[in-house]
Design a protein around this nucleic acid. Sequence first.
DNA 1: TAAGATAGTGCAATCGCTTGCACATAGAAT
DNA 2: ATTCTATGTGCAAGCGATTGCACTATCTTA
Lengths: 336, 336
Amino acid sequence: MRFETSTIKDIAKALGLSTSTVSRALRDRYEISEETKKLVLAYAEKVNYRANPIARSLKERRSYSIGIIVSEIANNFFSQVINGIESIAYDKDYHVIISQSHESYKQEKLNVEHLASRSIDGLLIALSSETQDIDYLRHLYAKGLPIVFFDRVPQDFETHKVIANNFKGAFDATEHLILSGKRTIAHLTNSENLSITKERLAGYKAALVKYHIGFRPELVKYCQHGGMHSAELEEAVKELLPLKPDGIFISSDRLTTGCIMALKKTNPEVAHKIAIAGFTNSNLVELFSPSLTSVKQPAFEMGQVATELLISMIEAKRPVTEFETKVLDTELVKKR
Amino acid sequence: MRFETSTIKDIAKALGLSTSTVSRALRDRYEISEETKKLVLAYAEKVNYRANPIARSLKERRSYSIGIIVSEIANNFFSQVINGIESIAYDKDYHVIISQSHESYKQEKLNVEHLASRSIDGLLIALSSETQDIDYLRHLYAKGLPIVFFDRVPQDFETHKVIANNFKGAFDATEHLILSGKRTIAHLTNSENLSITKERLAGYKAALVKYHIGFRPELVKYCQHGGMHSAELEEAVKELLPLKPDGIFISSDRLTTGCIMALKKTNPEVAHKIAIAGFTNSNLVELFSPSLTSVKQPAFEMGQVATELLISMIEAKRPVTEFETKVLDTELVKKR
DNA sequence: TAAGATAGTGCAATCGCTTGCACATAGAAT
DNA sequence: ATTCTATGTGCAAGCGATTGCACTATCTTA
């Protein structure tokens, strides 16, 4: 800000002390006498002194802030994760800087690099659906930037990760469709790159196997852009319908809502006849028509766990070499 | 970040120049010869030099970043505004820091003050529903922090503001209900503090007047917490229903969805009988059942306009004294 | 009583970058 | 030949905070 605030120097001058004494008093160092501390603290309080975080960052080479990259904050799942992140971060005196990749690799890289140059102390990231090359992250990581992945994680990157039990979530949803009598179950899913895509596909297949239903590749549709473009979805729906599915298992928030929308728009007459089960953290599912069975991820908790892991890495005295991948259970909310 | 990157000093040493020359060359100042500039630029490129924004902020006392305060990023309206803000900000080389107030005054103040201490160059803010005392903003403003309000604006604060045409939006929605034959139209709205609450109430009343329908205060319900607590909404609905409204005009995104939810939960039998018209920027309205008429705000555009105004203030050479309040039209999307 | 221990404080460098001013060199003008 | 004007660079201070080291009292201890 261009305007004046009181600095440590002002306090020093006013009290006839040196800046170092003031600084140490404020940081409650043992060298300073109780008396002086009290004096300084009282005066600082009086003039409403706030340490300049910029100056501190420069000196300490850290910023007490952590960066977050998600594809879209408008996505309920991600905004819930962010709330979880904030809840822990603020508790531990970190601030949070949010960036959106909008599912674009280029944007993601740009944002990460900007955050890094702003001295974030650590990074929480869910990869964009376009991202395949994560060398730029490896590079930052190698230079010492702690990174924790959540939701969309890379396989070959040794660090903490937090994910939902995607396999089980997908299995449960598919099984639910089967148990309600569906036999031709399509699967609408995200870009093949993503970890969640693979895991959820596996869960879907496993459920089919359990009930002796043959896997038909043509029933699986991938959306490169994660449903960011409605045309992409309508195309997928259009290709799927001739195969006469009686159920669809959808593997992401945006795809789930987008698919129902596309169905209603292009084929309103069948929209209510196809049973839908999909991953979504929307808190509006109860309002949807047709209604659906949803797989909810523990988004808030995911944010919390990821943040705890990240902060533990940031504050570790020695380099961390043991990494965990936490897997959190999803919840199946059956259609009413 | 704790790890080394090349600095201006490194470049200077490598090229046998002084740091000042390098700095000036990088900033393309006229004093430096073309030759030297080329040399420096080439080398900087080679070592992938990135100016340290922290150091720059400290020195220049500005950060090329703007702060945003909204109540909740999970709210579609706000996430769209944020996208609008980003679209302009990135174009003009500003970065954006998002904070959520969660409709809490305390949180809002805390966040604003933190942003200010992080040397944001300007602030874009939509007030929380709890906020009544904006002295802390006045204070920062007086000290030189440019502020632009959007959506929820204070009356007695001389600066740029960007709002929707709330009066007309409310009028149109209410008129629509009347024209479809409703006569007992309730109004569910936000905290009385908010500008939007007053403007929308006025629009609602005006429509009643136009069609010679008496205004009944008991049909208006205020929600202090903007629908953050479902209990608040259920209570409001419970009080409203005995009055047998045949239509409800709802004045905010969260209230609109929350109200339908409450209706469905507490009185499913009447949920479909009451016509609903409400402000919402949800892109899922088409999926809702009961369906509703919605008033959409030009959220993206609002973000853009607000950002342009803010940046013009930030970059103005002399203090700005002429302020505008831009009013953007809403769009009525009729129930199908 | 002299020397060492201890406590409390200040000096000054440093983080990376910007910028006013001084300085050096070279060609132009007198 | 001397002075002046460009032109291009470098010196050094400063942004606000932290911290190793040095310094001065005061108090112990032999």
